[in-house]
């Protein structure tokens, strides 16, 4: 009987090796381990054995049965794995096909610049004020100490509706409005659309965006003007940006200055963006003219202040290397979609 069992094991192993699908495995299992299987048949012959051999042989037969079951189980697992592998192999996909993107919108580049400037000034304690695009001659010129015969008041420079109303030529009227409604301390910026009677070409647009700022308080000096703007350009263009303040003239500030900064493209070495000079003119600024303060009802003896302004389009064009201002107003999708938030 021992030999029989041994032989069964050998044949079973051979048969099992030939099995390579589930149904054949099941058939084999039934043939050997089923109720009428080969093993059961053998066990039925146990009764013929001497009484003392029975337990030994019984135990041995059980071992054989366990071994066969284990082998079948392991084969089953093997076949399952093979099936899964085959299934997986059939599930090949082309991972280079395009993904199913969620289409995000694209911000206007000037909006990106605006956002950054607001953030920088906010970090320095400035609030943002808003004002109308249609304003008055009084707010746009008179309040700002602009001489009555200043060429900027001409019809060829400024858009008018009538003798009183115009399209603001800068955002300074917002400063006037702020000073008229609020006592110092004032620390504000305003950003908005401005208009000048310039024909549209690569460098001019009848509409542009300006950012202007104003600080009025007791004890504000020209040193504060320099310090604040130096800090601003470092935060906006990088910590190694240097500023040069050149004397200039504006009706609403005195002293007035223009600010050149280290070219942020070439870091001062000279490139086509700075026309080889290594510097870029970026800001106009100055100490608020006492007549402007007085016009707005602020005591120019007690309070001093500074103001500054810059063009959003200019900064935007420099930053993204845009060489024609018209791109900023054409709303061409092929342009818009290049800018990411």
């Amino acid at each position: 009987m021992k030999e029989q069992l041994k032989e069964i094991q050998v044949t079973f192993s051979q048969r099992l090796r030939e099995v390579n699908e589930m149904q054949a495995l099941e058939n084999l299992r039934v043939e050997y381990l089923g109720k009428t299987g080969v093993l059961k048949e053998i066990l039925r012959g146990m009764g013929k054995l001497p009484k003392e051999e029975r337990p030994v042989m019984g135990a041995h037969a059980n071992e054989v049965r366990d071994a066969l079951e284990e082998a079948i189980e392991s084969k089953r697992q093997e076949l399952k794995d093979r099936q899964l592998d085959a299934k997986i192999a059939k599930e090949w996909i082309d991972i280079t096909l395009p993904g199913k993107k969620i289409q995000m919108g694209h911000p206007h580049p000037s909006t990106l610049t605006t956002r950054q400037i607001i953030d920088v000034f906010h970090s320095m304690g400035f609030v943002l004020e808003d004002g109308p695009e249609i304003d008055t001659v009084a707010n746009n010129f008179d309040a700002l100490n602009s001489p009555p015969d200043h060429p900027s008041r001409d019809l060829s420079d400024t858009f008018y509706f009538d003798e009183v109303n115009l399209l603001r030529t800068h955002t300074s009227p917002v400063q006037v409005r702020t000073m008229m409604k609020q006592k110092p301390p004032i620390r504000m910026i305003s950003i908005g659309r401005c208009f000048r009677n310039d024909a549209l070409d690569a460098t001019h647009s009848p509409m542009f965006t300006q950012c202007e700022g104003l600080v009025v308080d007791e004890g504000i000096t020209m040193g504060d003007l320099k310090g604040t703007l130096e800090q601003f350009v470092k935060l906006l263009f990088g910590a190694d940006t240097k500023s040069v303040f050149r004397p200039h003239n504006f009706p609403f500030t005195e002293p007035s200055a223009e600010v050149d900064i280290t070219c942020f493209k070439c870091k001062g070495a000279g490139c086509r963006f700075c026309s080889g000079s290594g510097a870029i003119e970026i800001l106009g600024c100055g100490m608020v003219h006492p007549q402007v303060l007085e016009y707005c009802g602020i005591d120019s003896e007690r309070y001093t202040g500074f103001a500054f302004g810059m063009g959003i389009e200019r900064v935007t064009m420099l930053r993204y290397e845009i060489d024609d201002i018209r791109y900023l107003f054409e709303n061409d999708q092929r342009f818009s979609r290049q800018f990411r938030r």
């Binding site: 620390r187 504060d224 310090g227 004397p247 005195e254 002293p255």
Partner: peptide, 29 residues
């Protein structure tokens, strides 16, 4: 103010030391 401007430009804008104004009021968004 015109005379103060003359002083500033002749003294040199670059010779005026930079300072930061004291923030007398917190920034409100």
């Amino acid at each position: 103010a015109d005379l103060l401007e003359e002083i500033a430009r002749l003294y040199g804008f670059d010779n005026i030391p930079s300072t930061l104004p004291v923030l007398n009021k917190p920034a409100m968004q």
